[in-house]
């Protein structure tokens, strides 16, 4: 019975959502600060595209749309997941997670989904404010919009798996900060969140194409803008799904390997 099997994970998602709500103030404030970052990007591109000449095929309204979509995907699956994981692994609290009758990876995903509810709600509010301040963005036609939504939903598991896999590295290193810096840097550049991938030289673009990161920002943004439509969009979504499958299996294997070499402090 799937509903019985799901019950523990639903409870985990609920409690993660609740525990985020217990600290509404920092949560909302940190989001306010992300808005400032969005503001910087919007301000910069407004100046650069003020003349009306498109840059690398982007007009100002299009760039606005691109930045907003990548802002939304940036809000989803915050660092909460990997940092709590890192903390529990390094402090040995992971021992308690291991005494619970749930799959570790699924439980972390459930935890992340609980947060996503809150993250998407707040992202929506911010987008509304940004639209009011910087002007409307083009809205795609219905079929394209549906494709966009599918790719947006796929961002959540994909980004979770990237974050989770890097969190697993805590079993091999004591310094998670470095890992998370590296992961954030690589994914900022190669996902297209920093700047659309067409701004990059050819070799960097090819690198981005073959790695999973483009699926967490560039893919939904390009589909939204219609720069990838029809079969092209379907192909990009297929790549997202493929990476989800590959990373899920890979992370499970890594987790099993990690358990073999687990040492817990205070043994």
């Amino acid at each position: 019975m799937p509903s019985v099997a799901m019950r523990p994970y639903l409870a985990i998602a609920r409690i993660s959502w609740r525990s985020a709500l217990a600290y509404r103030i920092p949560f909302v404030l940190s989001l306010c600060m992300m808005v400032f970052n969005l503001l910087a990007m919007l301000s910069l591109w407004r100046v650069l595209l003020a003349s009306g000449h498109p840059l690398a095929g982007f007009t100002w309204p299009e760039m606005r749309a691109y930045l907003l979509v990548s802002f939304v995907t940036g809000c989803l699956v915050s660092s909460f997941t990997d940092f709590t994981m890192a903390f529990r692994i390094q402090s040995g609290l992971v021992a308690l997670d291991l005494t619970q009758p749930v799959h570790y990876q699924r439980a972390r995903f459930a935890q992340c989904l609980g947060m996503t509810v809150l993250e998407s709600a707040t992202a929506a509010v911010v987008c509304g404010a940004a639209l009011a301040a910087f002007g409307a963005i083009p809205v795609p036609a219905l079929p394209q919009l549906a494709l966009f939504l599918v790719s947006l939903v796929a961002v959540v598991p994909l980004k979770f798996l990237i974050v989770y896999s890097s969190g697993l590295l805590c079993f091999w290193t004591h310094n998670y900060l470095g890992v998370s810096f590296a992961r954030a840097a690589v994914s900022a550049v190669l996902s297209g969140a920093l700047v659309p991938l067409v701004f990059f030289p050819g070799w960097l673009r090819i690198l981005a194409e073959v790695l999973p990161f483009q699926g967490i920002a560039s893919t939904p943004a390009l589909i939204y803008l219609g720069q990838a439509s029809g079969w092209d969009a379907v192909r990009l979504i297929g790549i997202q799904l493929l990476w989800i499958a590959v990373l899920w299996a890979g992370a499970s294997a890594a987790w099993n390997a990690a358990l073999r070499r687990l040492t817990i402090h205070g043994g």
């Binding site: 409870a11 409690i15 040995g92 609290l93 308690l96 749930v102 205070g266």
Partner: peptide
């Protein structure tokens, strides 16, 4: 029970931890 580590949720009422465990152990 680990004497030095708690399985209680730090930020939530004890009752919430218990309901989580209720669902977790079905």
């Amino acid at each position: 029970v680990f004497g030095q580590r708690t399985q209680l949720w730090w930020d939530l009422p004890v009752r919430e931890t218990f309901t989580l465990l209720r669902d977790m152990y079905r």
